[in-house]
């Protein structure tokens, strides 16, 4: 049980870590000052959530690893984040579409986790949900605004959706870790979140004049850690370089 719980907590924490890192790559390069502020704010929230999830993961594991140790001293195969969040930023539209597709899942996951049988998880979920409510609100407005903006912005948003759609399915698949979480009343069955997710996307894409791709094929391998994309290794090379170059240092 504790192995499965550790895996589950790494999934939550690695999603926020990897996405937080990706979003932080924008710093100083956003299309407008308000977006620079909002992106930094989102990244900051996600990194804060990472600390909570991964500290708890380390505690559950009981091997003396804390959030920093987990974040900066695991290799690609140790990561349990969804493939969606490790995808490169692309243009601003791709970044915001990725954010929207993730936030829509993330918020309903957190809402469900607020009823978790594990009180620590419920507490983290409650704190995170407040922040993610705002993330989803902002991502939704941006997807609608750019989808229903100019011809160019519409085309770019549609291209972003088409590109990222194959990474949506992974959020809703059930594996042994998820099944153990469901049995223990810790987390919801991922598939149970899908109908509300689809309904939200239908509404938002209608307002954004975007077309949801027909093909529901979904890449797998992120949350199980079995096959990440090539992008993650490059991200870690940057993110973990300092800690690995100077392993004796405290910062």
């Amino acid at each position: 049980m504790s192995d499965n719980l550790f895996e589950f907590l790494c999934r939550m924490g690695d999603n926020t870590l990897v996405l937080g890192h990706r979003v932080s790559e924008w710093c100083g390069h956003a299309p407008v000052l308000e977006e620079d502020i909002a992106l930094a704010n989102t990244a900051l929230d996600l990194i804060g959530q990472t600390t909570l999830w991964l500290d708890l993961a380390g505690e559950v594991e009981g091997a003396g690893r804390d959030a920093d140790k987990l974040a900066f001293h695991r290799d690609v195969w140790g990561f349990r984040n969804l493939l969606l969040v490790e995808q490169p930023n692309g243009d601003f539209g791709q970044t915001m579409m990725r954010q929207f597709l993730f936030d829509a899942w993330h918020l309903s996951q957190l809402n469900a986790l607020m009823d978790s049988s594990n009180t620590q998880i419920a507490a983290i979920a409650e704190k995170s949900a407040k922040e993610v409510t705002y993330h989803l609100e902002r991502a939704t407005e941006t997807v609608i605004g750019l989808g229903d903006g100019t011809e160019e912005s519409h085309n770019r948003m549609q291209a972003a959706l088409d590109k990222l759609w194959p990474y949506v399915g992974e959020m809703f698949t059930l594996d042994d870790v998820d099944a153990a979480m469901v049995d223990a009343g810790i987390a919801p069955d991922p598939a149970s979140l899908r109908p509300a997710y689809d309904a939200l996307l239908d509404d938002v894409f209608a307002a954004a004049t975007l077309t949801k791709p027909q093909d529901d094929f979904g890449h797998q391998g992120g949350k199980s850690g079995k096959r990440h994309s090539e992008h993650l290794g490059h991200m870690l090379a940057q993110m973990q370089w300092l800690q690995r170059a100077y392993p004796d240092a405290t910062w």
Partner: peptide, 21 residues
């Protein structure tokens, strides 16, 4: 920011750069 040594340092630096914006 993308090479900060700890999660806390990364968060502080993000907050600082956000302040500057």
């Amino acid at each position: 920011i993308t090479r900060a040594p700890t999660l806390e340092r990364k968060a502080i630096l993000l907050a600082k750069v956000q302040d500057e914006a």
